[in-house]
Design a protein around this nucleic acid. Structure first.
Lengths: 209, 209
DNA sequence: TAGATTGTTAATCGATTAACAATC
DNA sequence: TAGATTGTTAATCGATTAACAATC
């Protein structure tokens, strides 16, 4: 499993959102301090792993006390860049695209999907969850105008590469790819593949034992 | 990263669906045989890794020729249990639940979501993507009657544990958990967590370099 | 002070990659 | 036969876990 430029292992990065969820709940439930053991128990991890992960976010705990919850939440959010606002366009207003346009959990993670795009002209001009749907032909123009750097790709596999090319040509720097197709993009564009069939595979194998 | 009882590494299991996608396309494009190198190039993997993964599915290739595509597809599907039909109930007919009820990619993976459940009585009795929505209070009864073993959990985090308990009590053996809450379940119940905030974290870190 | 908890350094474990023999 | 490709065994790499010193 790869590492990114900050030298933080990808598995650690993927656990950080879990920590945030647990910490926010612990903050409401109890007090100011939390130990690695408590966090670990809630997530089914080992305390050692939690301490190792925390070390990456540059937060320091206090022997005997643990970590200051509020500070920890703040640090993790800064580390992930979730304290800043990032704007995105979504292409492909099908079932999944519609769900993502309406998902209210992104606000907390610094992500705002400004608008949707679709090649089906019947959808163009409509508003879904309060967000306007534009024609794909206007993607380039609107990316430039709004300085958007992130594209959410929720089109069917057969259209995915074509739309990815449009995203790249328009200056998009990161693509959140829900299309279950492996994309060809220049090295300077970051792609995060999201594919639930991987999860279904693990579940299928588990159930068939 | 853990291993399952068949001794196949989880990362390998997660790659199998990717191989299926590529193989189906290769089958349409060209011929009968495919080499590990060709598969690898399409997915950005190394040929060695592809061969290693293939070995787990008990398929054998032929030196000089490669693997027989059709046979490979068949074997992988059998290995994943996707050749058989598995039936599921979905609880939580919000934006994401609705999208999953309408997703037509599951048929190919042996999964059929028979019906939806919701605690909001206004949704009960309606049909979404041709599937009836029942009250959660009838979950237990219908699981028994239809011998369903898989539950898809798409409720908000605050309701997730409660619904998971209902699923477990009803005899569900596997939970596909989209709630972004860590669930407490007995050891004999398998949980597969699906959480896009992990992916967003990786993307966020990548973009902030 | 004693005890609990952090943080770091070393050991282990497992997946990936490399090397190479086998073979069509 | 020669060359290409598989499959296996060994080496490497990186994440997790263990051990333990530091310290409030």
């Amino acid at each position: 499993m790869g590492r990114n430029d900050r030298g933080v292992p990808v598995p650690t990065v993927k656990r950080l959102p879990l920590y945030l969820t647990v910490l926010q709940k612990l903050q409401a439930e109890q007090g100011v301090w939390v130990s690695a053991t408590t966090i670990a128990r809630r997530l089914g991890l080992t305390p050692i792993q939690v301490r190792k992960d925390m070390a990456y976010t540059d937060i320091v705990g206090l022997p005997k006390k643990g970590y200051p919850i509020e500070e920890l939440i703040r640090q993790i959010r800064i580390f992930l860049g979730w304290n800043r606002c990032r704007e995105a366009f979504l292409v492909g207003v099908g079932a999944l695209g519609t769900a993502l346009l309406g998902y209210d959990g992104f606000a907390d993670k610094g992500l705002t999907i400004l608008a949707g795009f679709d090649s089906n002209e019947e959808k163009v001009g409509r508003h879904i969850h309060g967000k306007e749907i534009f024609s794909v032909s206007r993607f380039h123009e609107l990316v430039q105008r709004c300085s958007v750097s992130l594209g959410v790709l929720t089109v069917p596999p057969h259209a995915a590469q074509e739309i990815a090319d449009i995203m790249v040509d328009s200056g998009i720097r990161g693509i959140w790819n829900f299309s279950s197709l492996k994309l060809n993009v220049p090295q300077n564009v970051i792609v995060q593949d999201e594919d639930i069939s991987a999860g279904l595979a693990v579940l299928s194998i588990g159930l068939s034992q």
